[in-house]
Design a protein around this nucleic acid. Structure first.
Lengths: 248, 248
DNA sequence: GTCTATACAACGATAGAC
DNA sequence: GTCTATCGTTGTATAGAC
C-alpha cells in the first residue's frame, strides 16, 4: 500500500502497518465478529484483547492443549460462560489466531513484492520487514508455529503455502540478481529456506538472544549480511551501525 | 570413542553409534528400567519399542497433550493397565524421551569435540554428524523440540544448556580458524546460531524438503558450503558430488 | 452482556482377577 | 506379565438467572 523506503526503521514500520493498539484489535474484531455473540464493538474489543493476550501467555508457556478454558477464565477475569460469548469453541480460538496472523503477513509481504524494488533492496526490505513483524507480533508467530498441528488440515496447508510463497519471493529476487550479474547462487531454494529458518529463529529462540543481549537490529543486519555473502555479493552497504556483541 | 574420518558417511555413522535396532532399544531399557515394573529385558524391550514408536506417531501428528493414553493403548495393542507397567506416568514418558535423546547427542557431539580436529574438518564433521543423527532419530528430535514446554523446568533448562554447548563448540572452531587466518568472522555467536537454525530445520520442516526432493546429503553439503562462505573461506573441497535440484 | 450452576464426556491412574 | 473394571478428576460446553 504505502511506499517503503529500503532503509526502513521499525518506527516507520509501526506507523505504516497498524499491528498493535486499539485500531489493530478493532480490525481483529471485524475479522471474526460473525462468530461472536457480542455486537457492541466498544465492549467487544476490550475483552477480545484480554482473551487473546491471556491465551498467548498461557499457551506459549504451557501449550495450547494443556491450557484449559478454566485457566483462561481465571487469567482474563471473564467467567466460563462469558468466554463463549467471544469464541465459538476452544479450537475456534486457535484458528482465528492463525487466520489473523496469516492475513497480515500476506498483506505486508505481498505489498512489498508489488513495489518492484531492485533485488538487493527487496531482500533487505523483506528481511527487515519480517523481523519487525516478528518483533511486534512475537506471541502470534510463536503460537502459530508451535500449535500448527492442532489446527484443521486445511489451515495447516494454508500456513505451509504461505511459507512457500514467502520463499518463492526470495528465490525470485536471487534469480533476478543472478541474471543481472550481481549475485551467484547455485541452489536458490536451499538458500531461501536457510533465510526462513534464521528469521523464524528470532521468535522461536528468544531466550537465547535475550540472554546474549543480541538486539533485533543487530540480528536482522547479520542475517542480511550473511545472505549477501552466500550470494557472493560484496556490496554490503550497511545503513545501520554494527553493535557490540559479547563473545562468551 | 571410535575415531572419525572427517568425510564420514551415514553408513559408517550408523555402525559407529548404535542409534537404532535391538541394541539401541536395549540401551533405552537400561536407562530407565528403575521406573518400570517389568524386569525381563526380552519382553520389556519389545513393548518399549512399540510404546515409543506409537508415541512418536501420535504425538508428532496431533501433539503430546492431545494424545490420550487410550490412543496409545489402541495403537500399541497394550491395555491401559498394561501401559503402566512400562511407564510411571504420561509425563514421565515424555521426560524419558528427552533424557535419552539428550544423552546420545551429548555422547556424539562430545566425542567429536574430543578428537582435536582442524577447525574446518571439525565443522564438516559436526554439521554432517548432526544431520545424520537427525535423520536416524528424526521423531525423537521433532518430539523434543515441539514438546519441550510440557517438560519440567529443570529439564527445559538442560535442553537449552545442550543447545548452548553445541553452539559453543562451533564458536570455538570459528575462533580457532580466525586465529590461524583461514576464517574471517565478526559475530561468531550469531553465525553459530544460524547454523543451529539451519540444522534444526532439517527435522522441523521435513515436509518442505521431501516435497522439493532435497536429499539429506545435498542439504548437509549446502549448510556446510554456506557456512564456509560466511567464514570467507574459499577452501570448499567438497567430497560429495552436487545433486540436482529443481528450481520451482 | 455477564454471571452461576451444571451436564456429561474423556482423561489419567489404580486395584485386583487371571 | 497382562488384562478388565472402575475410581475420582478435569475438561469443554451450555442453560438459564440476572
Amino acid at each position: 500500500m504505502a511506499s517503503w523506503p529500503s532503509h526502513i526503521t521499525i518506527d516507520s514500520f509501526r506507523e505504516t502497518w497498524a499491528l498493535e493498539g486499539e485500531p489493530f484489535w478493532h480490525s481483529v474484531f471485524e475479522m471474526h465478529k460473525d462468530k461472536m455473540q457480542i455486537k457492541n464493538p466498544n465492549v467487544a474489543v476490550i475483552n477480545l484483547e484480554k482473551i487473546f493476550t491471556a491465551t498467548f501467555h498461557l499457551a506459549n508457556s504451557k501449550g495450547f492443549q494443556a491450557m484449559s478454558l478454566r485457566d483462561l477464565s481465571r487469567e482474563t477475569g471473564i467467567s466460563m460462560g462469558g468466554l463463549y460469548a467471544y469464541i465459538g469453541s476452544k479450537n475456534d480460538l486457535a484458528s482465528v489466531i492463525e487466520g489473523v496472523l496469516r492475513k497480515y503477513i500476506d498483506q505486508v509481504i505481498g505489498g512489498l513484492a508489488g513495489e518492484n524494488l531492485a533485488p538487493i533492496d527487496f531482500l533487505r526490505a523483506i528481511v527487515f520487514g519480517e523481523i519487525y513483524m516478528m518483533q511486534i507480533l512475537n506471541p502470534w508467530y510463536y503460537f502459530c508455529y508451535m500449535e500448527l498441528k492442532g489446527l484443521p488440515r486445511e489451515q495447516q496447508q494454508q500456513a505451509m503455502d504461505l511459507e512457500l510463497r514467502f520463499e518463492s519471493y526470495l528465490i525470485d529476487a536471487f534469480e533476478a540478481g543472478v541474471k543481472s550479474g550481481q549475485f551467484v547462487c547455485e541452489k536458490p531454494q536451499l538458500l531461501a529456506s536457510h533465510v526462513t529458518a534464521q528469521l523464524q529463529q528470532w521468535h522461536l529462540k528468544h531466550w537465547k538472544f535475550s540472554q546474549r543481549q543480541v538486539s533485533m537490529q543487530c540480528y536482522a543486519e547479520n542475517v542480511f549480511e550473511n545472505l549477501l555473502l552466500c550470494l557472493r555479493c560484496d556490496n554490503v552497504a550497511s545503513g545501520v551501525p554494527l553493535q557490540n556483541q559479547r563473545t562468551a
